[in-house]
């Protein structure tokens, strides 16, 4: 019974991370900002470390606030380097996130005695330990702390996208027109970036700073190959996320390896299937039709 519950909580948490990230990822890839998502996920590290040092816990408000603001700062620095400094866009991204990530690693090394973050955690998180950290007990069922936090994250992200759907959709499709009719495109941009930062920070403990990129981009890209209808794309990306969490978990158990790594691998498998067999936009469909 206990064992079954362990599986359940890990798969649930994996799915929650995957869904929160996938929803945001749909906007990121359509805005051609996938690598900015990558940059944010790396650069929140020093924010997490400093805030963790101040508050002593990985899932405190301080950490979320500190790291989210650092994510926003990252997008801001990238834009400044690009517009003011004359550094080309892709180089500006690379320069910014490597620096902030390096600072994060140095901070971890400098406080290695006091911090409960190690390099493994940064790389692939500790989703396997989620069931051990019980947050609350309802009707005799022990609910892990992370499951609660990740549910809140999913709720916040989906509410934001539900309420802001029109603005996000418009500014993603045609920012110039949006500007012309007086829509606050910058506000929407930073709102989305704040959401991406928040999602990366909250997912950090489960999947680490690097593999979260897979969660952001791969399910969204898979869904993009399968449909031409945006709400379906959002939904499908979540489905891919859940399927990957489920199969990924058992792959990890089978190989006795990292769960987050296995989930990312499964996301890659689903993407490859879509790449080959997607009805309209897949490789085979295109080759056969021409």
């Amino acid at each position: 019974m206990d064992f079954w519950f362990n599986d359940f909580w890990i798969i649930l948490c994996g799915s929650l991370v995957a869904m929160s990230c996938a929803i945001l990822g749909c906007f990121l890839i359509l805005r051609k900002m996938a690598m900015v998502g990558d940059a944010i996920s790396h650069s929140v590290l020093p924010g997490i470390v400093v805030a963790f040092f101040l508050s002593g816990s990985l899932s405190s408000w301080t950490v979320m606030l500190g790291a989210t603001s650092l994510g926003l700062l990252t997008t801001f620095i990238i834009e400044m380097l690009n517009k003011r400094g004359g550094v080309q866009a892709d180089a500006a991204i690379g320069l910014t996130f490597t620096f902030l990530f390096a600072v994060g690693v140095i901070l971890i090394a400098a406080n290695s005695g006091n911090l409960h973050i190690d390099q493994d955690c940064v790389l692939h998180g500790e989703i396997a330990y989620i069931p051990l950290d019980i947050g609350t007990t309802i009707a005799g069922i022990e609910i892990p702390r992370q499951a609660i936090i990740l549910s809140v994250l999913f709720f916040v992200i989906s509410t934001l996208v539900y309420l802001g759907y029109r603005g996000l959709f418009l500014t993603t499709f045609d920012p110039e027109y949006a500007d012309a009719i007086g829509v606050k495109t910058t506000t929407w941009h930073y709102l989305l970036m704040a959401a991406v930062s928040l999602a990366t920070v909250v997912s950090f403990e489960s999947v680490g700073a690097i593999l979260v990129v897979a969660f952001l981009i791969v399910p969204a890209a898979t869904a993009y190959l399968l449909t031409d209808h945006f709400p379906s794309m959002l939904l499908l990306s979540c489905v891919v996320g859940i399927l990957s969490s489920f199969t990924g978990y058992y792959l990890a158990v089978y190989l006795d390896g990292s769960i987050a790594g296995a989930i990312s691998t499964m996301m890659g498998v689903f993407f490859s299937l879509a790449f080959l067999f997607a009805p309209k936009h897949g490789y085979l469909a295109k080759r056969l039709s021409t």
Partner: peptide
């Protein structure tokens, strides 16, 4: 992003 994260995920899985 896809190649980067999926290859790395696979790498981490194998490494662990």
């Amino acid at each position: 992003g896809i190649v980067l994260s999926v290859f790395f995920g696979l790498g981490i899985l194998l490494l662990t």
